[in-house]
Computed example of a mutant assay.
Amino acid sequence: MADQGSPGRGTVWRRRAWALVATGVLLAAGGCAEPAPDTTSREIQRTLDSRATAVLRHDEAGYLAALDGELRASGREEFANLADVPLRSWEYRLTGVRRSGDRATADADLRYRLDGYDSAPVTTARTLELAVRDGRWYVTADRAGRGGAQQLWQQGDVQVVRGTRSLVLGTGRDLARLRRIAADADRAVPQVSAAWPGRWAGRVVVLVPDSLEAMGRLLGAPAAGYRGIAAVTTGRGERVIVNPEAYDTLSAFGRGLVLTHETTHVATRADTSSATPMWLSEGLADWTAYRAAPRPPAEAAPALHRAVRTGEVPAALPTDADFRFGADAEVLGRAYEGAWLACELIAERYGEAALVDLYRAVPREGLDEALREVLGASRAAFTAEWRAYLRHRLLPSR
């Protein structure tokens, strides 16, 4: 029985129920209602999906329908530049949206695949400006996002040459020159497969911009750092990008060496990580190239040959900093040459399979543990062996 001076339990619960009802009435009236969910991201994604569908369907009208203002003129040109590019997929994935009134800035990943060549999408960051009109968002600007770069089709009409094992995309180049590059790439692919038994696509995509400056824009880096560099592989190992000003000066042997080297980076990308030292990745690429076209060490390693001949045998394996583009040419030359001879040493004394095993083990184990596991040597012991090998190979009379 409840105390006479206190309300009973039933009374308490009735009061609480009436309080809840009153609260519900206030909410229904909008006094404390939550704001309607912001649908901006969903609406912008719908605009980008429409644009992507139009690209794949070669629908110019649909492509331009997603654009607004001055972007339509450049968009029409860009759409035409893409006409011959064999696309299997093209999509945008929003990573962030910032809205201010009827304007918005969207960060997105453009993901696309080339039909028959890309086993996974290539991703590049884009930043898009948009404006809303009559309830629909339109793209008003489209530029490279953080970590992104200009795309080849933004530089001009893309010409396409299909090799037996390669796809060459170029702008401002005559077809005969692109066909020659495709032939070089076709010869490089089986040479890489012979040296690298791992699973890889067995084909390569080569981009050929119109100039050194255009190459820099594709890489999102100052072009001056690539002067004299005939070709590079993008950081993720998806594309070989040719510097036409340097590549065209090479002999047939030089062109083959360059494309075999770069194609090796494409083949080994799945087994390469931040733990892989550049002397191993660059050395393996050069070893693969010279394996197919041997040259005397003094001829293939002139900078290191000059140093060793004067008693300047490197005290340590090349560091990653030694491989910086734009560095002193002599330092850069010695770095690449020393890396090649380190990999040649491993292949010659421990076996080619050991070189491949070491490369694969480094991302899992780290360099020191991989050296002990595969070669049975510490880093110090291997470095000493390498220094002796330099003398042996570059000063054969001793």
Rank of each mutant, 00 (worst) to 15 (best):
T383K: 07
G198N: 00
Q191F: 08
R393K: 13
T272R: 14
R255S: 10
V206T: 07
E352A: 14
P197M: 01
G220R: 12
L167P: 01
T310V: 15
C32W: 14
G326L: 08
P396E: 05
R360S: 02
R99S: 14
A307F: 08
E348A: 15
A285D: 02
V21F: 02
V308F: 01
T164E: 15
Y63K: 03
E43G: 10
A285T: 06
E373G: 11
T233K: 09
R364I: 09
P318S: 03
A223Y: 02
L56W: 13
T105K: 06
S74P: 04
S74I: 13
L367C: 07
A141H: 08
A329M: 11
A292Q: 13
V161M: 04
A270G: 11
R99Q: 14
M215A: 10
L371I: 10
G311L: 12
L332A: 14
C32M: 03
G148C: 02
L26K: 08
I229K: 00
G96W: 13
R93H: 03
L175C: 05
A183H: 10
L56P: 12
S50G: 14
R113F: 05
L167K: 05
R51K: 07
S100I: 03
L395V: 11
H261K: 05
W13L: 15
R165Q: 12
P197S: 04
W13T: 13
A183C: 04
L280N: 01
A354Q: 02
T124K: 04
T268P: 12
H58N: 11
N81H: 15
A231E: 03
A194I: 11
E60Y: 01
D142Q: 09
E312C: 04
R16P: 02
G101F: 06
E43Q: 12
A347W: 10
A377E: 13
V21D: 00
G96C: 12
W340K: 03
F253C: 06
A361G: 03
A303L: 07
L257E: 11
L257Y: 09
R9F: 06
P35N: 10
L82V: 07
E129H: 13
G228D: 00
A201V: 09
A144G: 10
